[in-house]
């Protein structure tokens, strides 16, 4: 073995090891983040955290019940707004559309998907806050729902198109009309994928803060209803982390832990649903 070959082999082994290091470092970041949040926020999580309202600076205790409920309300509103548009739009693309219209809709969805979340916030402010003159839970749900549309649309379309042609033709051959085929055969066959897509979309918007700043705003008390501004976990984390108080910092860590666990659990459940197999044989 001459020196040159030895050098090449060394370089090969060295560089390949380095790529492994890169991969390990990248994945380690996830566990580092999780570890940090558990270490810093774990001790502040107790029954009060989930059931009490925030207390003024200086008082100890208190919780984030209003933010947790607020995030729940926002996510439900966002799902009610975003998922139908995404789902039925995807049915149109996969089953009815000509190629020109499909191109336009896909293009618009991809464009919407790429819009920075803060710009979504500006738009939602212009549409759902400014005309009414006040911040509201509705507006926050609208902003988050906007972000869910393209995610739901594109993945639902993909899963609908993945349903084998034979199933479709079988239903047609039995005399089912097109919409009946869609409702009774195609959508049930693709439901795992669609559910995954919706859950991933929910997880994606659950941690969004920027679109809520100008829409749901924030609230130190219970929201008086969906027309009133509401607190949410991401918004509370943001304002508490930037405050100068140690107590609030601890609360921010705890809220961060709750939010991260929520997002990760939804993600894992979603992927679990999908990996248990596509519900139709391919």
């Amino acid at each position: 073995m001459n020196a040159r070959l030895r050098w090449r082999k060394f370089l090969s082994n060295f560089m390949l090891t380095m790529t492994g290091v890169c991969a390990v470092v990248s994945v380690a970041v996830l566990f580092f983040i999780l570890g940090c949040l558990v270490y810093q926020g774990g001790t502040s999580i107790n029954w009060n955290f989930f059931t009490k309202l925030p207390v003024p600076v200086g008082e100890t205790g208190g919780g984030m019940a209003n933010a947790i409920v607020g995030t729940g309300e926002l996510l439900i509103l966002a799902t009610l707004f975003g998922v139908p548009i995404g789902f039925f739009g995807a049915v149109y693309l996969a089953e009815f559309s000509g190629s020109a219209m499909a191109f336009v809709v896909r293009y618009a969805a991809d464009l919407l998907n790429g819009v920075p979340s803060i710009v979504i916030g500006i738009f939602a402010y212009a549409v759902a806050v400014h005309p009414f003159g006040h911040f509201s839970t509705y507006a926050g749900g609208f902003a988050l729902g906007l972000m869910m549309i393209p995610i739901t649309l594109r993945s639902t379309e993909e899963f609908l198109l993945a349903v084998p042609r034979t199933l479709r033709e079988g239903a047609m051959a039995l005399g089912a009309s097109k919409w009946k085929t869609i409702v009774t055969v195609i959508v049930p066959a693709a439901y795992r994928g669609i559910l995954t897509a919706i859950l991933l979309a929910v997880a994606r918007v659950a941690g969004e803060t920027a679109p809520l700043l100008f829409t749901a705003f924030g609230n130190t008390y219970w929201s008086k209803g969906l027309k009133d501004a509401t607190s949410s976990l991401p918004a509370v984390i943001y304002s508490y982390a930037l405050s100068p108080y140690d107590d609030w910092h601890r609360q921010a860590w705890a809220a961060g832990l709750v939010l991260l666990v929520l997002v990760l659990v939804i993600n894992i459940v979603a992927r679990g649903i999908l990996s248990r197999g596509i519900s139709v044989p391919r």
């Binding site: 990248s26 994945v27 983040i33 803060t209 961060g256 990760l264």
Partner: peptide
Amino acid sequence: FIDLLAAVPSVIYGV
């Protein structure tokens, strides 16, 4: 795990 990392909300990176 990389997919999960992509799902971590940005406000948590901020904290």
